[in-house]
Each structure stands twice: as structure tokens, then as C-alpha cells.
């Protein structure tokens, strides 16, 4: 496979998805309803990325509680709720994860 062609094609696909609706010539009016639905996009996306990383391994569900990803994730949630500090939460939970992994 030509890797450069792949890189160029991926660049095209990703940029198009990011740019498409920023284009004013695109006829599209967003209603308040649509904007309300869209306000849930970020939490939905981020959760959908986190879920499989924490609870699955190579396509199989992890049922054990002694799962470093789960322990790290719970720690991150608790730290974030307590401290409301993004940096502290990310650094501490990553450190804990690297120690127990």
C-alpha cells in the first residue's frame, strides 16, 4: 500500500468532516431544537470513546474489578469531582495507572 496516498486521503476525510458545516455556502439553518441536540455531542462522543477503553480488551468485556483502567478511571472521576482541576486530575490518575499497570 502507498502510505503517502493513505495519509493524504485521511487528511482529506478528517478536514472535510471538520470544515463542512463551517462553510457559509452550505444551505443550512440550525433551529434551536437542533442546537439543543448538538449540545449533547461532546459528552456523548467522549463517553463513547472512554467506554470501550475502560471496559473491554481486544473486543471482550472485562468483568474483573482489578482492572487498572477501571481503577484509574474511577480515580479520575473522583478527583475531578473533588478538585475540579483538569491538570491535577489527569496527571495524578495517569501516575496511579502507570504504577498499578
Amino acid at each position: 500500500m502507498n502510505y503517502w496516498l493513505l495519509i493524504i486521503a485521511m487528511t482529506g476525510v478528517v478536514f472535510t468532516s471538520r470544515y463542512l458545516f463551517l462553510e457559509p455556502k452550505l444551505p443550512l439553518k440550525l433551529s434551536d431544537e437542533a442546537l439543543r441536540v448538538l449540545s449533547y455531542s461532546a459528552p456523548a462522543v467522549l463517553s463513547a470513546v472512554i467506554g470501550p477503553l475502560v471496559f473491554t480488551h481486544e473486543g471482550a468485556l472485562i468483568t474483573e474489578l482489578a482492572n487498572p483502567y477501571l481503577i484509574g478511571a474511577v480515580t479520575a472521576v473522583v478527583l475531578m469531582l473533588l478538585t475540579k482541576n483538569t491538570l491535577l486530575t489527569a496527571v495524578l490518575s495517569m501516575t496511579l495507572f502507570l504504577i498499578i499497570n
Binding site: Y40, S47, I50, G51, A76, M80, T89, S93
Partner: peptide, 30 residues
């Protein structure tokens, strides 16, 4: 990735509708 996204998502959960969104999205993704 997990740590970053959790740190971003947790402060977003300010209402029951966001909480429901997060829970359903997580479970369905798994």
C-alpha cells in the same frame, strides 16, 4: 485518553439530561 476525556466530561455533567446522555453513550459503546 481516558484520563483526559474524563477530566473534560465530568464538569459537563450539570443536569440529569447530560448524565443520561453520558451513561447511555458509555453502555451502548461497550
Amino acid at each position: 485518553v481516558v484520563a483526559t476525556f474524563i477530566a473534560i466530561v465530568v464538569p459537563m455533567v450539570k443536569s440529569s439530561s447530560v448524565l443520561a446522555c453520558v451513561l447511555v453513550s458509555t453502555v451502548v459503546s461497550i
